[in-house]
Design a protein around this nucleic acid. Structure first.
Lengths: 200, 200
DNA sequence: GGTAAATGAATGAATGTCCATTCATTCTCG
DNA sequence: CGAGAATGAATGGACATTCATTCATTTACC
C-alpha cells in the first residue's frame, strides 16, 4: 500500500533538498536519494516536480498557519495577540529551518503557480496581522493613524528577514527570545526615545 | 567596437526578462530577443547566463546604494538620515520595478555565487541602517535598548516586503508618499497609542 | 582618392549535456 | 499466486553554449 509515511518522507526530503539547492537546482534524483526511494517512486506520490514544491508549501506552512490561528482566535487583547503571533512565527521558523529557507526562496518566485498559491493560503496568513492591528485600533490601544494594510506587510517583512539570517549557515548572533523581544519592542514603541512617556 | 550601449541594452533586457520569468525560467534567447541581438552576441559581452545576473545586481543595485550612501553621509541628524534612507529606497524601487522584482527573487537564491554577492555589496547596504541606528543612539534620540543588529534586518525586511506588492501586477493600493510616511511613523513611534507622550 | 586586405562584431544553426518523466520489469506480501 | 508497490534504466525535450561564417568598417598602400 502506498503509505502516508512515504509521502511524508518525500515531503521532508524535498524540503531539505529545496532548502539546500533551491527548486530549480534540485534534482528529482536528489530528493529520491535523500528519501531513500527510487526516482520513479516519487511519481507514485506526486504528479511532477512542481507538485512536490506546492505540497511542501501547502502542508508544512499550512500546519503553522493553523496553529497560530488557533492560538490567537480566543485571545481578547490585541497586544497579546501580536505577542503570540511573533512568538509562534519565530519559533516555528527556528524549529524548521529547512522550511523557513524554502519559504524565503520559493515564495518569491515569479512563477504563475507559486503566485496563485501565495494569493490564497499565504494571503490569509498575512491578513491575520492586519486583523490584529484593526482589533487593537478598535480597542484604542493601537494608534489610529497607522494603516493596517501597510503595517501588516512591514511586520511580516521584518519577521521574515530577521528569520533569514538563521538559515545563513554560520553563527546565530541573537537568540530566539532576544529576537522576539526586540521585534516586539520595535513594533510596539518604535525607535524614538520618548523623553515624556515612561518606558513600555 | 563592442559598444557600452549594447552592454547596457542587454543588462536592461535581462532585468526585464528575469523579473518576468525568474532567472531559471529565463532563456538566453528571450534576453537576446528582448535586446534585439542574436543569441551569440550575448556571449561577446558576458561569460555566461549567471554572469548576466550578477552584472544586473552589481551594476543596477550598486548605483542605488551609492546614491543613498552619498545622500546620507553628510547629514548630522540620525532621524533625518533614516528619513532619507526610506525615501530614497522606496522611490528607487518604485521607479525600477523590474529591478525590484529581481532583487526580491534572486537575492534569496541559495546559490553559492548569489550568496557571495549578498555578502559583499549588499551587506554594506543593510549595515547602513544599523550605522544610522547607532548614530541615533549616540545622539540619545533613539532608544538605547534596541539592538541595531536586529533592527537593521527588521527595517530592511519591512521596506522590502512593502515594495513587493508594487511588483505584483494589479493595483497599487498605497502611494509612494503614503507608504513612506507609514513606514517612518511605524518605526519611529511604533503601534502603541501613547496616552502620556504627545504625538511625534 | 581609390582599391584591396584585415579586422572583429554579429549571427544563428548545430552541439552536447542535463534531467524530468516514463514504463517494462522486479519485488513484496496477503 | 496475483495485484499493487517499487525500481532504475531509457527516453526525449529543453536550452546554454559554441563556432564557422558573414559583412560592415577600418586600415594600408599605391
Amino acid at each position: 500500500m502506498k503509505s502516508i509515511d512515504k509521502h511524508n518522507k518525500i515531503i521532508l526530503s524535498a524540503t531539505k533538498v529545496f532548502a539546500k539547492k533551491g527548486f530549480f537546482n534540485a534534482r528529482i534524483s536528489d530528493i529520491a536519494k535523500e528519501a531513500k526511494v527510487a526516482d520513479g517512486t516519487i511519481y507514485l506520490y506526486f504528479n511532477n516536480k512542481f507538485d512536490i514544491l506546492i505540497s511542501v508549501l501547502e502542508e508544512e506552512i499550512g500546519k503553522i498557519i493553523e496553529q497560530i490561528k488557533r492560538a490567537i482566535e480566543n485571545e481578547p487583547d490585541a497586544k497579546t495577540m501580536l505577542e503570540i503571533f511573533v512568538t509562534k512565527h519565530l519559533s516555528a521558523m527556528k524549529n524548521n529551518k529547512h522550511l523557513a529557507e524554502v519559504i524565503h526562496m520559493e515564495l518569491r518566485q515569479s512563477d504563475r503557480l507559486v503566485k496563485e498559491y501565495r494569493n490564497n493560503t499565504f494571503r490569509s496568513y498575512i491578513n491575520l496581522i492586519s486583523e490584529i492591528i484593526q482589533r487593537g485600533q478598535e480597542q484604542k490601544i493601537f494608534r489610529q493613524d497607522i494603516a493596517p494594510g501597510i503595517a501588516k506587510r512591514a511586520f511580516f517583512g521584518a519577521l521574515d528577514e530577521v528569520t533569514r539570517v538563521w538559515t545563513d549557515a554560520n553563527v546565530t548572533h541573537y537568540t530566539l527570545e532576544e529576537t522576539t523581544e526586540q521585534i516586539l519592542a520595535l513594533f510596539r514603541s518604535g525607535l524614538l526615545a520618548s523623553p515624556a512617556a515612561g518606558k513600555n
